[in-house]
Amino acid sequence: MLIDYHTHHERCGHAVGKLEEYVKQGIAIGLDQIGLSDHMPLLHVNPEEYYPEMAMPMEELPRYVEEAFSLKEKYKGQIDVRVGLEGDYIEGSEEKIEAIVNAYPWDYVIGSVHFLGTWDITDFRQTQGWEGRDPMAVYEQYYDAIIKATKTGFYDYIGHIDVIKRFGFKPEGDVTGLENAALEAVKRSGMAIELNASGLRHACAEMFPGKRMLHYAKELGIPITIGSDAHSPARLAENLEQARQCLKEAGFVQLATFERRIRTLVDF
């Protein structure tokens, strides 16, 4: 079973390629399932006054959904298209997030934390946000947001659960307790996580989550899916063979797939 559940396209502003190009590329490389999962529109900052090209405009959201479901039907029998959303968890914006989650018949919704307040900790243009901050306090705030996300019921799985390490900023102290608490919250919620291979392209030089967290997720019995976080069709399924090997080494033998918010485990 070859799947890639984490992809972004041109509507989000910082990716390239049309949805159909991703689907065609998925067919060309032999994927069984492709998940379309673009970023939720910005809800808590004014897009016109914030950093450009962060997420799709709100008026594009229904067009994205309509096109994605059209492609799901068009390519039926060639590849299974699953229609998803990367739905940021933003503390204080829960009602707005819930409205978007409930407005469309998603196959799955990824719960990702990018923002701590108005600071996007995953944006290379905003790394100055670390200046003058205690890295441990930032990690504590980040993992607290992950735990809160698990309690909302909005999401099917947590995306890139330790993405806070992306740019290589780390506390001097041990963060094992924070990481474990986040995974234990996922377990209590009944959710899954993803193994996101995109971390290999960044300063942290390892996947999200890293191997220690991955092994603890297996110990807890947390289901897992897989994604490249591709921002261009050419990067679809990038490093996923290596990711699959990491999963096998950690003892995983199944992947979580999603359709109409129902999770199914498949052998890989």
Rank of each mutant, 00 (worst) to 15 (best):
F268R: 01
G129P: 03
K72M: 05
W106R: 08
L183Y: 00
H215Q: 13
I158N: 03
Y216M: 04
E49W: 04
I222M: 04
R11D: 10
H9G: 10
F268P: 02
E10Q: 10
R235Q: 13
V65S: 12
Q33H: 07
K148L: 09
L183I: 00
P47G: 08
Y157K: 05
E53C: 01
E249Q: 15
D107T: 04
R82C: 15
I90T: 07
Y139P: 09
V175T: 15
Q128C: 04
G92L: 12
A256V: 06
G87A: 10
Y143W: 02
R133I: 09
A182V: 06
C246W: 11
V253H: 15
S232Y: 02
L116A: 13
Y108S: 07
A205D: 14
H44D: 08
T225N: 10
M56G: 03
N46R: 02
E98W: 01
L236V: 13
M56E: 12
S93A: 15
D4K: 12
E194D: 14
P62F: 07
P233Y: 08
W130A: 13
Y139N: 09
A103W: 11
V45D: 12
S228L: 05
L61Q: 07
L220G: 03
H160R: 09
Y216N: 06
A15V: 10
H202V: 01
Y50G: 09
I164C: 01
P233N: 03
P135Y: 14
A149F: 02
I158T: 03
Y143E: 08
F124N: 10
D267M: 06
A203H: 08
T176C: 02
E67K: 14
A237G: 03
V138L: 09
T225E: 06
L42P: 02
K18N: 15
L200Y: 10
D88I: 02
H160A: 08
A237Q: 05
L195S: 09
H14E: 06
L236P: 04
N102I: 00
M54H: 01
G159D: 08
G190W: 02
M213L: 12
K148E: 06
K96S: 14
F268T: 02
N239T: 07
E10W: 00
E91M: 11
Y139Q: 09
P47H: 07
F268K: 00
I146S: 01
G177S: 10
A55L: 02
M1S: 12
G17V: 03
P57Q: 08
F69I: 01
A192E: 11
D144V: 02
A234D: 11
G77T: 09
I224N: 06
A149I: 03
V113F: 01
L200M: 12
A197Q: 07
P223G: 13
E259L: 14
G177Y: 07
I224R: 03
E131A: 10
A103R: 11
K72W: 04
E60T: 03
P209D: 07
A181K: 00
F115T: 09
G177Q: 11
K218C: 05
Y157N: 07
